[in-house]
């Protein structure tokens, strides 16, 4: 008999190995093979974590919003959508935190300061706080369906912040530089291996996100099942008492 342990499957295990290999490749490219920047020197290497982190957070929060919308609009309102939304939200918060920390380090080394109340930094910090609030709202109690309904509405409101964060550098005069790849001019402003390292980081972090979200939503499913089982046991106990 096949023994099922943990939240992994053979597919997620293969994906996990691929993620490890890609992250190792990113470390080699980012720290070893890619050259220093002519102005920033080695400091530029922070970009290979900083940019993929915020990119992954955008994807995570996008997935949270899509799953929330599907949950609210669906006829059967499957809680699986809510669990995917919650799992993506948790991982998105983690990646925004990584982006804020690495951005702060990069800022100290290039701008000369850890933090400024600049439009990009402020809107990113606000995004972080919003999704921390989203995660807290998920934990406020009630039934699974109450949790799903209130957090789905919040997720659909919170996603509106993403365009504000991304375009803040063009909407306001900002200390933060404009996008080097996804910019309105469609002009890529990175030299060869730097661009490759950044692209590798984007792919590796995206796959890492997929791996994490698959495991986390399965863990959430088990948590919900455990909680439901507790309720079933309580009802059974009451019935037994009544029948005694």
């Amino acid at each position: 008999m096949a023994r099922q342990s943990g939240t992994g499957t053979s597919a997620t295990r293969r994906l996990g190995i691929l993620v490890i290999l890609m992250l190792a490749g990113l470390a080699l490219c980012g720290l070893w093979f890619s050259a220093e920047d002519v102005v920033q020197g080695s400091t530029v290497r922070i970009m290979y974590i900083h940019v993929p982190s915020i990119w992954t957070a955008y994807i995570a929060f996008g997935l949270t919003a899509v799953c929330s919308a599907v949950y609210l609009s669906g006829k059967n309102r499957s809680l699986a959508w809510d669990r995917f939304a919650g799992a993506a939200g948790e991982i998105g918060v983690l990646f925004v935190a990584v982006s804020l920390v690495t951005g702060s380090m990069w800022g100290r080394l290039t701008w000369g300061t850890y933090w400024v109340w600049d439009a990009r930094l402020t809107s990113t910090a606000f995004l972080f706080i919003t999704y921390v609030g989203y995660l807290a709202v998920r934990q406020l109690g009630g039934t699974h369906r109450q949790r799903a309904r209130r957090s789905s509405v919040l997720a659909l409101l919170a996603i509106l912040e993403i365009p504000l964060v991304h375009f803040s550098v063009t909407l306001w005069r900002s200390l933060h530089q404009e996008a080097s790849v996804a910019n309105p001019n469609a002009k890529v402003a990175l030299d060869g291996l730097m661009l490759f390292s950044l692209f590798l980081g984007l792919v590796a972090f995206t796959l890492l996100f997929v791996w994490l979200v698959l495991h986390r939503q399965r863990a959430m499913m088990l948590e919900d099942a455990f909680s439901d089982r507790g309720l079933d046991l309580a009802i059974t106990a009451r019935r037994n008492e009544a029948g005694a």
């Binding site: 002519v38 102005v39 290039t110 404009e178 990175l190």
Partner: peptide, 26 residues
């Protein structure tokens, strides 16, 4: 003072740019 840096990233290539003209290149 806060130093801005552009969104352009250029590889420092020792065969192309030596230390003496680094600032000029920047």
């Amino acid at each position: 003072i806060e130093v801005k840096h552009s969104n352009q990233y250029v590889e420092k290539n020792s065969t192309r740019i030596d230390a003496s003209n680094k600032e000029a290149a920047a």
